[in-house]
């Protein structure tokens, strides 16, 4: 009986692996090289991740009309994190993977207008209307955050903080995982929370 169970379990694991592989093609994993991409930015430049080797990089999935994104921008907490990070030399890449006609989709002008209105200090705002970078990273919510170290490895992926709320009530008390990962990472310390379940609106592919 024990043997039968083991065989059943092993065959089931193989099936499960196939299912997982089909579902999560995202190449992003903690400690592994973050996949390179090349994409147009709202600045008019073409941006590649490889351009930033040697620097800390934050990626923030954005949909300006998602209520959870709105909460983080209306409270000023996202801009404060951007300012804090970019002043330390961190490269902040916001990415919009909303397809044309879907919530949060912007062209370059729309993105620049929004960034100005919100007082956002992102390094570049990447336009990904086909969702290529989004799918490459398995981005599933807005916001969905990734932190990449100077060696080009992903060291954090997940939620912006530990406060999956619809309203701003608890934002100030939240534990900001991106700040924490950057602070610990830059100090050469292990990153305590390297992953967390991202929360927010589904990315509008």
């Amino acid at each position: 009986m024990k043997v039968q169970i083991t065989i059943a379990a092993i065959s089931a694991i193989m099936i499960a692996s196939v299912v997982v592989a089909q579902r999560a093609p995202a190449a992003v994993a903690i400690g592994k090289p973050a996949p390179n991409f090349s994409a147009p930015a709202a600045s008019g430049k073409t941006i590649s991740l490889n351009d930033y080797k040697g620097k800390w990089v934050v990626m923030e999935w954005n949909n300006k009309d998602c209520p959870i994104v709105v909460r983080h921008y209306n409270s000023g907490s996202m801009q404060a994190t951007q300012k804090w990070a970019t002043e330390k030399g961190v490269v902040w890449l916001s990415v919009c993977s909303s397809a044309p006609g879907k919530q949060g989709h912007v062209d370059a002008d729309g993105a620049n207008e929004m960034l100005k209105a919100k007082g956002a200090t992102v390094s570049q705002y990447l336009l990904d209307p086909q969702g290529e970078i989004g799918r490459m990273y398995g981005a599933r919510t807005t916001p969905h955050m990734f932190v990449i170290n100077p060696a080009g490895e992903t060291v954090y992926m997940g939620a912006i903080d530990d406060s999956p709320n619809a309203s701003a009530a608890n934002t100030s008390k939240a534990r900001n995982y991106v700040r924490e990962a950057l602070t610990l990472g830059m100090a050469g310390k292990p990153i305590e929370v390297a992953t967390s379940q991202p929360y927010g609106c589904g990315v509008k592919y």
């Binding site: 209520p67 709105v70 619809a166 609106c201 509008k204």
Partner: peptide, 10 residues
């Protein structure tokens, strides 16, 4: 709560 169809609203 958050309510979604294709878009999401608070």
């Amino acid at each position: 709560f958050l309510i979604c169809k294709e878009s999401c609203l608070p």
